[in-house]
Write a protein that binds this DNA or RNA. Structure first.
Lengths: 141, 141
DNA sequence: GTGATACATTTAGTCTGCTAAATATATTTT
DNA sequence: AAAATATATTTAGCAGACTAAATGTATCAC
């Protein structure tokens, strides 16, 4: 209950997430994606044709980040960009066939990563953890 | 206990850590540091004059990452680099006065971030969380 | 309808990360 | 002693993420 414990949790979370990110990125390289791009694609699997601003909101990142991600994904043929007809300021992002096809393999990778992280956690423990995570998340806002 | 819950934990962790990282980086800007540099400095506060390879191991990152971080920290006057006398391949990193002085303010920021994240968590809950984090960490290796 | 303001995106430049390949110094093998 | 190998670091180039400033387009007020 001293500072030592407090300090470790902060750093622990940091270690876990950076390790996950690293492993996950490595795994995604098999299907020619980088970590983060999967989330952007996921947004499109749920609602194809949304704007870059909407992507920003969902991904909780800034406009220049989306510009760069979108540029890279377009160059690799996973998405295409079209200017909105009504509002010429807006860019709408659409999945290509290639981008659509990634859904199954990405979701499998999510599951694999999840299984590794929570290996040996019972269903009850997972529910409790879910609850704790939500509390932490709320604390950050 | 279905896939939905599993999936959320993976993503939750990701959200929490990226949000923390973002907030933390913003907070560190007040003392002219970027997120990650605090950890490198922390290593030096504990053992000044270690080599870049030792920093790699502690920070769990690759040599080029350390090269860049060290270069930036040197340019901002927080550390200095000296070639080892015995082995001319190795670079030893030393804190400057300016780097040494940051210790107190960084540790305060750690505490503040920790307090925010775990606000409303009882000591018992923190201990339990500590345990859960360790289990997850072990699962990733 | 012109001018001010708001909004979406891009550009330029910074950081932490990474990999692959180059460089420099040490050590080991033959 | 020369060649091969190992080790430490750097360089170059890519990714996500950021800020600040520029560009292009809409809208709103007068």
């Amino acid at each position: 209950m001293n500072n030592q414990i407090d300090c470790d949790i902060r750093q622990s979370l940091d270690k876990i997430s950076s390790r996950m990110r690293r492993d996950y990125n490595e795994s995604l390289r098999e299907i020619n994606l980088y970590v983060g791009q999967d989330n952007l694609l996921c947004r499109l699997w749920e609602s194809d044709g949304i704007t870059q601003m909407q992507l920003c909101e969902h991904l909780k990142c800034e406009p220049p980040t989306v510009t760069n991600m979108v540029k890279s994904l377009e160059q690799n043929g996973f998405i295409s960009r079209k200017r909105d007809q009504q509002d010429a300021r807006v860019m709408r992002i659409y999945l290509t066939e290639k981008g659509r096809d990634l859904q199954a393999s990405v979701k499998l990778k999510w599951k694999q990563q999840q299984d590794k992280l929570l290996h040996s956690f019972s269903p009850e423990e997972r529910l409790a953890l879910r609850d704790v995570m939500d509390r932490m998340e709320r604390n950050l806002y």
